[in-house]
Design a protein around this nucleic acid. Structure first.
Lengths: 190, 190
DNA sequence: AGCAGGTCGTACGCATACAAACGATCTAGC
DNA sequence: GCTAGATCGTTTGTATGCGTACGACCTGCT
C-alpha cells in the first residue's frame, strides 16, 4: 500500500504545519521509516511465503521458535516471539486446532506448560522455512550482504538500547506526570 | 520484553536445527531485527509519550496524518497511515467518540468522506507531538545523527523496493502455486 | 501443617488489522 | 435518461495484541 502523497510533498506539508515547532528530523525519519518498513516486510511475507500455508506472521514466528528449541516453555516462547503471554495463548489455540502444535504439562512444575510441534508441524516448517527465507532475501534485495548485516547490527543496537534503558526512561516520565492506565483489561468482577 | 535465550544460544540452536538446510543469514538477521526493533519502538512510544494521551500507535499516526494535511480524504489518510480502509473506519470511530476528529461528506463526490481535527484534536497534537518526538530521539539514542539518517535511508530503500517490485514478485509466486485466500473476510451470504 | 507471597497460564475487554462483501454513488457509453 | 462497471466507505468475520484479573500451583517461612 504505497503512500498517496510523494515524499517531497509530505516534507513540504510537514514544514508548513510544524512551523516554529522544533523537530529532530533524523529521529522522526528513522522511526517513521522503521515502522513503515517493518509493516511492508510483514505484509509481503504474509502474502507470499506464508500465504500458501495460510499462516499469519505471529503464528509463523511462534512455530519457528518452537521448531528451533524442539520443546519450550510457553513463557519463554512468548519472550522469544516478542509477544505477550496472553497473546500467545490465542495463537497456540489456533495452531492446536490446525494440528501443528501441541501443549503438555510440565512434569515437575504444575504451573508450566510445554510446547512442541506435531509431525505435521515439523513437516510444514521443513518445507516452509526455505520459501520464507527466500522471501526474506527478496525483501533486502535492494541491499548487498554487507549492507544487510550493517542494518541488522544498527537495529540490534536500538533493540538493546530499549531493553537496557527503556523501562528506566518510562519510569522517569511517569514520575513527572502520572499516566492513566491503558484501556482494556479484564474488569473487576463486582 | 527481552528474549529469554541469549543471541549465541539461539545461534547454536538454529545451527543444530537447520543442519543441512541452506540459509541466507544476512537476510534472516536483517528481517528478524527489523521486526523486533519496530515492535520495541512502538511499545516504547505507546508506553511513554502516547500513554498520557491514552492513544494507541495507530490512532496517533492517523491524527498525525490528518494534522499535517489539515483536511484529507479518508482513502488517502489510510494510505498515508499505512493501514487498510476497513481499519481506518474503526479508528475514526474511536477518535470521533473522543472528540478529536470529525468526518464530513465531500461536497462534490458523495462517495468520499473528509477528515479533520477538532480544536481539541489540534490542541492535543500541538502539545503531544513535541513529547512524541523527544521519545523518538530517545529511541535512536544509541545512534548519532549521521547513523540515524543512514538507517532511515536504508529502510527507505527497502520500502521503495517492496512498493516497486513486491506485487510483481507475489504474482509470480501465485502463478507457480495458487494460494488459498487469506482467512477472515466477510463470507458469501448464501 | 499451614499460609503468605510469588509466578504461571488462561479468561476477558477493548482496540486494531485485514480481506471480502456490501450498498451508495459516480462515470462512461449509449 | 438509462444502465453496466468502477470506486468509495462501511460492515462483517477471523485473528491478533496488550493489560488486567484470576485461579491454580509452587516456594519459603514458620
Amino acid at each position: 500500500m504505497p503512500a498517496h502523497y510523494s515524499l517531497s510533498e509530505t516534507e513540504e506539508a510537514v514544514k508548513r504545519r510544524l512551523g516554529p515547532i522544533p523537530v529532530r528530523r533524523e529521529a522522526l525519519a528513522a522511526v517513521s521509516n522503521l515502522y513503515r518498513a517493518a509493516a511492508a516486510v510483514r505484509q509481503h511475507l504474509e502474502n507470499s511465503a506464508l500465504r500458501s500455508a495460510d499462516l499469519t506472521w505471529s503464528a509463523f514466528v511462534v512455530l519457528w521458535v518452537v521448531w528451533i528449541w524442539e520443546e519450550i516453555e510457553t513463557r519463554h516462547a512468548a519472550a522469544e516471539a516478542g509477544i505477550s503471554k496472553g497473546t500467545l495463548t490465542g495463537i497456540i489455540k489456533t495452531l492446536e486446532s490446525r494440528g501443528l502444535a501441541v501443549r503438555r504439562q510440565h512434569p515437575d512444575d504444575g504451573r508450566l506448560a510445554l510446547l512442541r510441534l506435531t509431525p505435521e508441524g515439523l513437516a510444514l516448517m521443513e518445507k516452509l522455512f526455505p520459501a520464507f527465507n527466500d522471501e526474506e532475501s527478496f525483501v533486502v534485495g535492494a541491499l548487498d550482504d554487507e549492507e544487510s548485516l550493517h542494518l541488522a547490527d544498527t537495529l540490534r543496537r536500538i533493540i538493546t538500547h530499549l531493553e537496557e534503558h527503556g523501562e528506566e526512561r518510562r519510569e522517569n516520565l511517569r514520575r513527572e506526570s502520572p499516566a492513566p492506565p491503558r484501556r482494556g483489561g479484564r474488569r473487576r468482577s463486582s
